[in-house]
Simulated scan of single mutants.
Amino acid sequence: MCLGIMTVPIINKVILGWVAFGAGFAVAGGFIAFISLIGIVTRLAGLTKTADAIPTYENSMALGLIFFNLVSLYQPDLQWISYTAALSIINIVGLFTGIFAGCLAGALAEVVNIIPIFSRRIKLRKGFPYMVKAAAVGKCIGCLIQFYIF
């Protein structure tokens, strides 16, 4: 059976779309597995004393990854949004992205145990919480400079 000249590009686009969509889900699934492996969700739930909400946190993270996978794949046209609303949305997304990046960096540093090793090498006995807070503030200021100035 001959498919015709016009249907071949459509079939190619459909196949390419499904491969890209599947690859995005595979990357998102691997990312969720990585985040779960290093224990960000459980650690934050333990610190905030909300361990009963861990499934909600994990579902929210999965839905966020799926949503932004779709947004990056289809790139919706948002010209109808006012300039002020767009800035508000960008700031909110940037805030949560910064929080997530900070938590990820903190979890990776904790997994590698870099902070205790560093504190022993420089013989830091007092002020350990201030060192951690200074690193977090420095990371925040660095991200702000990178995103808003450069």
Score class of each variant (00 low, 15 high):
Gly30Met: 07
Phe34Leu: 13
Gly46Glu: 07
Lys49His: 11
Ile54Val: 15
Val27Arg: 04
Ala51Arg: 14
Leu37Asn: 09
Glu58Met: 08
Tyr57Gly: 02
Leu63Gly: 06
Ser60Val: 13
Thr42Ile: 03
Gly46Arg: 10
Ile40Asp: 00
Ile40Met: 09
Ala45Thr: 01
Asn59Gln: 14
Gly39Cys: 04
Leu70Ile: 05
Ser36Arg: 12
Ala51Trp: 06
Ile40Lys: 00
Ile66Gly: 01
Leu37Ile: 03
Val27Glu: 02
Ala33Arg: 11
Phe31Glu: 11
Ala33Met: 08
Ser72Thr: 11
Ala33Asn: 05
Leu44Thr: 07
Val27Cys: 07
Glu58Thr: 12
Leu73Phe: 14
Ile38Trp: 00
Gly46Asn: 08
Gly29Trp: 02
Leu73Ser: 12
Ala28Gly: 07
Thr48Ile: 06
Ser36Gln: 13
Met61Lys: 01
Arg43Asn: 07
Phe68Tyr: 15
Ile66Phe: 12
Glu58Arg: 14
Ala53Thr: 14
Ala62Trp: 02
Leu73Asp: 02
Phe67Thr: 15
Ile35Asp: 05
Pro55Ser: 07
Leu63His: 08
Pro55Thr: 04
Ala53Met: 11
Val41Pro: 00
Thr42Val: 06
Leu63Trp: 08
Gly64Leu: 14
Leu44Arg: 08
Ile40Cys: 01
Lys49Phe: 13
Pro55Gln: 10
Tyr57Glu: 02
Phe67Ala: 15
Ile38Tyr: 02
Ala28Tyr: 03
Phe31Arg: 05
Ile35Trp: 04
Gly30Phe: 09
Asp52Ala: 15
Asn59Pro: 00
Ile66His: 03
Phe34His: 04
Thr48Arg: 12
Leu63Lys: 13
Asp52Gln: 14
Gly39Arg: 01
Asp52Arg: 14
Ile38Leu: 11
Ser60Met: 15
Pro55Leu: 06
Leu37Ala: 14
Leu37Tyr: 13
